[in-house]
């Protein structure tokens, strides 16, 4: 009997893992797109574009992700807009991810020698062209390792979506625990599945970092 329920728990947890994966992908891809736009604004050297971007990043990096989820889920609903856990979680995680990715990528852009900017500027390239053809292709090389590393934070961040009722791995764990009263087993399995998702990425990020250091 106990063997039987072990397999049922594991099966359900693995089934729920797909939602963790989907949510992570949405947050990561969405956050990447928003982050790239913000990166352009943040490094534009135009003050009225830079300052709001800075404030945006400060807000999302300086407040708990949990608060951001609550603000989207409970807060926005009060204005008469129906918010599903899907939408709130996807949106909050996307914006949160974008803030961090922008900062990571800004560091990479700033690591590109100033001469590159000056040279491309003296070729009459516009700011967008400079970024597109000169700066970003070089910055991308340095950005890959920390970006992969941050994807681990995104996966772990999706666990908080469980609190607003989004059924992913952590929420499934809570529900299964309520049904089976085997918290030790359930949460150990949940942790193990997260580990299996995150560890390869961490390992890969570390390897990329090492590779890059050798190349320099």
């Amino acid at each position: 009997m106990s063997d039987f329920s072990f397999w049922i728990i594991l099966k359900n947890l693995i089934w729920a893992t797909q939602w963790t994966v989907y949510l992570s992908l949405i947050a990561f891809v969405g956050g990447g797109i928003v982050g790239l736009i913000l990166l352009f604004l943040r490094t534009s050297q135009v003050k009225w574009l830079e300052v709001p971007t800075k404030l945006y990043i400060e807000f999302f990096q300086g407040t708990p992700l949990l608060m951001q989820l609550f603000l989207f889920f409970f807060g926005v609903a009060l204005f008469g807009i129906e918010v599903s856990p899907w939408m709130a979680a996807g949106l909050a995680l996307t914006l949160w991810t974008s803030a961090f990715l922008t900062e990571i990528w800004r560091g990479c852009v700033e690591a590109i020698p100033k001469g590159q900017w000056e040279a491309s500027g003296s070729l009459a390239m516009s700011y967008i062209e400079q970024m597109r053809y000169v700066i970003l292709p070089q910055a991308m090389r340095i950005a890959i390792a920390p970006t992969v590393g941050f994807s681990v934070q995104v996966i772990k961040g999706t666990a908080l979506a469980s609190i607003i009722g989004f059924v992913e791995l952590t929420k499934a764990g809570t529900m299964l625990n309520n049904a089976t009263f085997r918290p030790f087993l359930v949460y150990a399995l949940v942790a193990l599945i997260y580990f299996c998702l995150c560890f390869p990425l961490s390992w890969f990020a570390k390897r990329l970092e090492g590779k890059l250091n050798v190349a320099r």
Binding site: L160, G173, N177, A191
Partner: peptide, 15 residues
């Protein structure tokens, strides 16, 4: 480092 804080917390508190 490769598991969410909330799962660690639940494991310690419930597990």
């Amino acid at each position: 480092r490769n598991t969410p804080f909330i799962v660690q917390l639940f494991f310690i508190f419930f597990g």
